[in-house]
Amino acid sequence: MTPILRKLLLTVLGWIVALVIAFPVIWMVLTSFKSETEAISRVPHLFAHLSLTNYVAVQERAKYLHFAWNSVIVSFGSTLLALLLAIPAAYAMAFLPTPRTRGTLLWMLSTKMMPSVGVLVPVYLLFRDAGLLDTRVGLVLVDALGILPVVVWMLYTFFKEVPREVLEAGRMDGAGPLREVYNLLLPLSMPGIVSTSLLAVILTWNEAFWSLTLTTSKAAPLTAFIASFSSPEGLFYAKLSAASTMAIAPILVLGWAGQRQLVRGLTFGAVK
């Protein structure tokens, strides 16, 4: 096989894989412009009678901006909180390990394997008694705790890539732990921190279980917005697709803009 043919085949394969992965999203966007009857048609038409009617209907029914603003606050707030907690934790684990560090890391990750519904009632009761139901503060807290294991793990991996000698040199020059982290560790692992933050924002943006359970209207994010357009009786696929498109649009743009950082950060350890 000639190198050109091989390159061509790999390119075609890459496009096919990309299309298969992107197809559900593309189909959702196309459906959002169709009528309800066309959306559920057994013989789908790719571009039949496209219009913005569903977007108008969605906008009339629900306050999109209210939900979107809540999503922004909650996803960025919980990411920030998780970073504040995870950076010192990952620093300690990477540079001051104890015999139990590995076990602690694995235990943290194991909490992600527990189904959320298993702790639904205790968390709900705690939130009720603390007055945190339907508040953005409550959702920031629970989402930050949800992504914390992933953030700690990722930061730990990135911090491990930073040569110890650099930090030791700082220490020789009289830097304390805070200065060491702020002036040396953070700038050196910035690509990793940015990709971790992007991933954390995406994860919390898409988080549905807690945001649907712990909010009603004031703090409800876009996941609740989408859930309001499904119906047991009556056609709803086109409006649901329009609502979903509106819900994923901001995070899609963010992911697009930050894809270089994201890929760089995520493949950093793998290359090594």
Binding site: A62, Y124, T213, S217, A220, S228
Partner: peptide, 25 residues
């Protein structure tokens, strides 16, 4: 103040709230 949800999600949320006397609705 309206909270419109898919039937199964609504059932899960309202059941949790009613059972724990959450008072959200």
């Amino acid at each position: 103040d309206w909270v419109v949800l898919e039937e199964n999600i609504l059932r899960q949320k309202t059941t949790t709230d009613a059972a724990t006397h959450g008072g959200q609705y």
